[in-house]
Design a protein around this nucleic acid. Structure first.
Length: 421
RNA sequence: GGAGAGAUGCCAGAGCGGUUGAAUGGGCCGGUCUCGAAAACCGGAAUACGGGCAACUGUAUCGAGGGUUCGAAUCCCUCUCUCUCCGCCA
């Protein structure tokens, strides 16, 4: 969430930035500041009265020790009076604080100056592209047909076991998944990201920490008996490792990577968008996360984009990098680059990675901080997919079909064990 | 799943109703000493939110939440987690 100090000191700027994100309730900012004024007033009254209670209670202790019972009783009456005035203040303070937090949670992160204006994905700005779209042989088919032809993925079996969006990978399909995961992890580790294996279910505090709660409650699977959430991305457990942690500046930067399955309810999706591997309820993803000094976060963002770009290039897939416009960005992000690869048989761009700088929006929620020259301050958090598997798989299958099989890019040969499927 | 024990600062660990934000030891930072280091000695050091130009100062925090009390790290209740034993088990 945004820092109160920023809202108070830079109110006009905050509203201007929120407008870029097409935020509909700018008046919330003023409400929040008014509530904070109220909170300060109440907090002062509370502290002041409580100080009297504490001081008097201490005196009572002294009097009791000296055996001055009568005086002590008189003081007790004083405390009684203080406490009577304290009770309503305490209640008001608690409800004001709660309201304040609720409102604060409704404000999205401020977009950086680099974010282009716009409301729809069409207004995203292409910053770079690479590779070239392949010429497909006659009779080329989409990946769901290829998956069937070469017996790589069984969508119907997934329907039987669980439901739509939970495919079963088998044979070379399963092996290729494993090869991709291992290649991605090795690639990230070589760049200094420390590999982690993390829980696939998290508690409420973690879901709040990265911003999945409260606003995206409906997008997560919820194991209600134990009140755990199935992770929609390993960003959640990875970033929350540093919830309520204060690092030393010498610990920075923190670089993490993990492979996990990701679970998303994707409520409201339907039709051609969800065909084949395009949109699943469970999919595999390798993620990278960094926690860095605030002064460096944009430099690091560029570095992460370059890192993912090289990975996509190594797979030989035609791609483009988009800088998301205000309307297409996620709630918590300050700047996001999406990677899309060309899925030649579908003739569609598919999003395979999203690399974002969250600045202090997540770290303020989860109190992930570091200490520099004795001063404690919030870290900046960033993450990106490196990479999401299903759409990579879709593009690899479609783009590399030659009628006899699928030719795999050279980087995968040693992971897959052969050059063709 | 059953029975018991426990959760205190960076770590270990005291405290079990009243100057305890917290003894003591270790670690860490600064200093003295030293050519330098070690040892020894001296000093410093939590987080959040307020008040104050500042020095400084108020409040909260001893797993979390609630309660008892003039006063709670200390007593009571609920929850979470850890450990030991039993059961079960990849």
């Amino acid at each position: 969430m945004l820092q109160l100090a920023v809202l108070r000191n830079d109110t006009a700027k905050v509203k201007e930035r929120l407008a870029v994100k097409n935020f509909k309730e700018p008046e919330l900012v003023d409400q929040i500041i008014a509530l904070d004024d109220e909170r300060r007033k109440l907090s002062f009254q509370f502290d002041d009265t409580k100080a009297k209670v504490n001081a008097t209670s201490k005196e009572i202790g002294g009097l009791m020790a000296k055996g001055q019972k009568e005086e002590a009783e008189a003081k007790k009456a004083d405390v009684e009076t203080f406490k009577k005035t304290l009770a309503p203040i305490e209640q008001q303070l608690a409800s004001t604080e709660q309201q304040l937090t609720e409102l604060l949670l409704r404000l999205p992160n401020l977009p950086s100056e680099l974010v282009p204006p716009g409301k729809t994905p069409e207004e995203n700005v292409e910053v770079r592209s690479g590779g070239s779209k392949p010429e497909l042989p006659a009779g080329a088919v989409p990946h769901w047909d290829l998956a069937k032809r070469y017996d790589l993925i069984d969508f119907e079996l997934g329907n039987k076991l669980t439901g739509a969006g939970f495919p079963v990978y088998k044979g070379n399909g399963a092996k290729l998944q494993r090869a991709l995961i291992q290649y991605f992890l090795d690639y990230n580790a070589a760049a200094g990201y420390i590999e982690h294996q993390v829980p696939h279910l998290v508690n409420e505090a973690s879901a709040y920490g990265t911003g999945q709660l409260p606003d995206k409650e409906g997008q997560m699977y919820h194991a209600t008996v134990d009140n755990f959430y199935l992770i929609p991305t390993s960003e959640v457990p990875l970033t929350n490792i540093y919830r309520d942690v204060i690092l030393k500046d010498t610990d920075l930067p923190v670089r993490l990577t993990a492979y996990t399955p990701c679970f998303r309810r994707e409520a409201g999706s339907y039709g051609a968008h969800v065909r084949g591997l395009n949109r699943l309820h469970q999919f595999d993803k390798v993620e990278i996360v960094q926690l860095v000094h605030p002064a460096r976060s944009y430099e690091v963002l560029d570095e992460m984009v370059a890192h993912v770009e090289k990975l996509v290039q190594s797979l030989g897939l035609p791609y483009r990098i988009l800088r998301l416009c205000g309307g297409d960005m996620s709630f918590a992000s300050a700047l996001t680059y999406d990677f899309e690869v060309w899925s030649a048989a579908q003739e569609k761009w598919l999003e395979v990675s999203s690399v974002s700088n969250f600045e202090s929006y997540q770290t303020n929620r989860m109190k992930a901080r570091f200490k520099e020259d004795g001063k404690t301050q919030l870290l900046h958090s960033l993450n990106g997919s490196s990479l999401a598997l299903p759409r990579i798989l879709a593009a690899l299958l479609e783009n590399n079909q030659d009628g006899n099989g699928i030719k795999l890019p050279p980087v995968l040969h040693r992971y897959f064990g052969s050059e063709m499927i």
